[in-house]
Simulated scan of single mutants.
Amino acid sequence: MTNLALITGASSGIGKEFARYHASKGGDLIITARREEALNTLKDELERKHSVTVQTIALDLAAEGGARKLIDEVAARGLNVDILINNAGFGGHGLHTQRDWAAEKAMIDLNITALVELSHGIGKGMVNRGGGKILNVASTAAMMPGPLQANYFATKAYVMSYSQALDEELREHGVTVSSLNPGFVHTEFAAAADLEGTGLAAQKGATAESVAKIGYDGMMKGKLVIINEGRLSFLLNWITPLLPRRTVLKMVRGMQTKSA
């Protein structure tokens, strides 16, 4: 298989668009998500349109041992991953203490634990072969605390910090690690996270296709942190850090408060 990419959360949204973009460049794929039927539909589309080879692995990465199962299955098939895109993740709206703990824990297990285990396991093979690229999908949420999505914002802050440190460790071994920090994107995320009716979900936002292209191209260039809009990048890097912390907290909470 040539230029093989492993993409998690590939059944919809940004993950599906990553798969489409990689296939359009002639790259083979391993796509994984929980929904087997959606994976098979995407497999058929990409193989028909681009004459690439697509393998599917349907599993729940948030389940106990999910990431290890994926790593072991890739190894059992004798596949060497050239590009790892850790895209799978989810959020959830509401006061942290009133949210279901099982859902909060599953968010940590998927957004952090599975991502780190895959980066460790697949990244080790890349280092041994002397090359590879990892793209971890974080969010602009990584760059500030997030009242009413406290756990989600914190998981993305972890992803951004971890990705930068890992890049510094692995770059001398031919492996780059990038953090993709998009703003609001029109996908199933808002509905799944119960964000409809908030100022955040009312934003114009970006398309999954445009974010996937910007993220993929930035990864291929070895960029450390990738933000999909110049205006957002300026705001988050040069304005927000200068504001009083309480002001930032109130601003973010206001964006995530549902209209009456």
Rank of each mutant, 00 (worst) to 15 (best):
D72K: 12
E47Y: 03
V54A: 02
A63M: 11
A63D: 11
I85V: 15
H93L: 13
D44C: 14
V52E: 01
V52A: 10
I57K: 11
S51P: 02
K43Q: 15
H50K: 05
I85C: 11
L95A: 12
L79E: 13
K49H: 08
Q55G: 04
L46W: 00
K49Y: 06
F90N: 14
G89R: 05
R35G: 00
L39E: 00
G89S: 08
D60H: 09
V81I: 13
G91A: 05
E73W: 04
T53P: 12
D72Q: 13
G89D: 06
V54E: 06
A38V: 00
V81H: 02
D60P: 03
R35S: 03
L61K: 02
D44S: 14
E37N: 02
L61E: 05
S51L: 08
K69Y: 15
A38D: 01
K43G: 01
A58R: 04
K69W: 04
G65R: 12
H50W: 09
A63P: 08
A38P: 02
I85K: 04
L59G: 07
E37S: 03
G66Q: 10
A63W: 06
A67S: 11
E45S: 04
L59Q: 07
S51Q: 14
T56S: 08
L42K: 01
E47N: 05
E47L: 01
Q55S: 15
E47A: 04
N86G: 10
A67M: 10
G78Q: 10
G78V: 11
V54F: 06
V54H: 02
R77Y: 06
T53Y: 10
K49T: 14
T56D: 06
D44A: 15
T53H: 08
E64G: 09
N80H: 08
V81C: 06
H93T: 04
D82T: 06
L95M: 09
K49M: 14
L70F: 14
V81P: 00
A62D: 00
V74M: 10
K49S: 15
E45K: 10
L95N: 15
N40I: 04
E73N: 08
A58H: 10
E47Q: 10
N87Y: 11
E73V: 11
H93V: 06
G92C: 11
D44E: 10
I57H: 13
G89Y: 00
L42P: 00
N86D: 12
G91T: 03
E64C: 09
V52G: 03
R68A: 13
V54I: 13
A63R: 05
V52H: 03
I71Q: 14
A75F: 06
N40E: 04
H96N: 15
V74L: 12
I85W: 05
